[in-house]
Amino acid sequence: MIGGRKFFVPTMLAFGFAFLYVPILSMIFFSFNNSKLVTVMDWPNSPTLKWYGKLFQNDQIMGAAGLSIKIATMNACFSVILGTLAGLVLARFGRFRGRTLLAAMTTAPLVMPEVITGLAMLLLFVAMEQLIGWPAGRGVTTITIAHVTFSMAYVTVIIQSRLANFDDSLEEAAMDLGARPAKVFWRITLPLIMPAIISGWLLAFTLSWDDVVISQFVAGPSSTTLPMVIFSKVRLGVSPDVNALATLMVLIVATGVVLSAIVMQRQEKRRAREMQLAASD
C-alpha cells in the first residue's frame, strides 16, 4: 500500500464485486440460452424462455417449492417469536442465572457446521419418537423444528444488536409513568425493534428456504424441499432449468432487498427526525 492505497483498495473492491457478481450474472445470462449444454451458446435460437416454461411444467420442482414456502413461512414466524424473546432477555434482563447458557446456545448455531446440527437433530427426533411417540415419523414438523432452532439464533442476534443501539431510557420512562411491562413492550419496545423483526423474519425465511443439509437429515421420504431437489439435480451437473429457477429467485430477492432497504431507510430517517423534534421541544 506504499503510496498506492489510492490504487490498491479500489482495485480490490472492483475485483471483489466482480467476483461476487460475475457468477450470478453468467447464470442469468445462460438461462436464456437455447442449448441443453448450458454454457455452449446456441446463438441462432437464443434468447429463449423455453427453460422457464419447462420449469413451470415440472411438477416435482413446483411441489417442492410449495412445500419449501410453507416450511419457510412457519419457520420465519416461530423464529421471530422465539428470537425476539431471547434477544429481549439477553439485551434487557441484566444478569441472571442461565444467561451465559442462553447466550451460548444462541451464538453456537451461527457457526455450527450443518452436518453436526443435522445429525444431532435427527438423533433427538428418533430418541423422542421412541420415548414419547412424538414426532411420529419425519416430515414437515421435524424440518420446521430444526430450522427454527438455527434460524432463531440469527433473529436473536439481530434483535439484540438493535436493542443495544437504544438505551432503555424510553422503556424506563414509560414504566415510571405507570405502564406495565407488557404494555411497555407492545407500545415502546416492539415499535422500536420493528425493523429488526422484519429483517429477522426475512432472514429466517431465506435461511429455511435455502437449507439443504439439515433438511436432508431430518426430512422423511415424503417431504422433499426445493433445495433438496436442486441439490440432487445439480450433483449430476449443470441443467438449464436450474439456471432459469436461479434467475427467478435472484430477481425476486434483489427486488425485495432493494425495496425493503429503501422503505427502511425512509422510516429510519423519519424516526430520527421525530426524535430530534421531540428532543428540541
Partner: peptide, 11 residues
C-alpha cells in the same frame, strides 16, 4: 440473501 446452493452451482 440469494440461495447459497445456487451460488455454488453458478461456479
Amino acid at each position: 440473501w440469494t440461495s447459497f446452493l445456487l451460488r455454488v452451482y453458478a461456479w
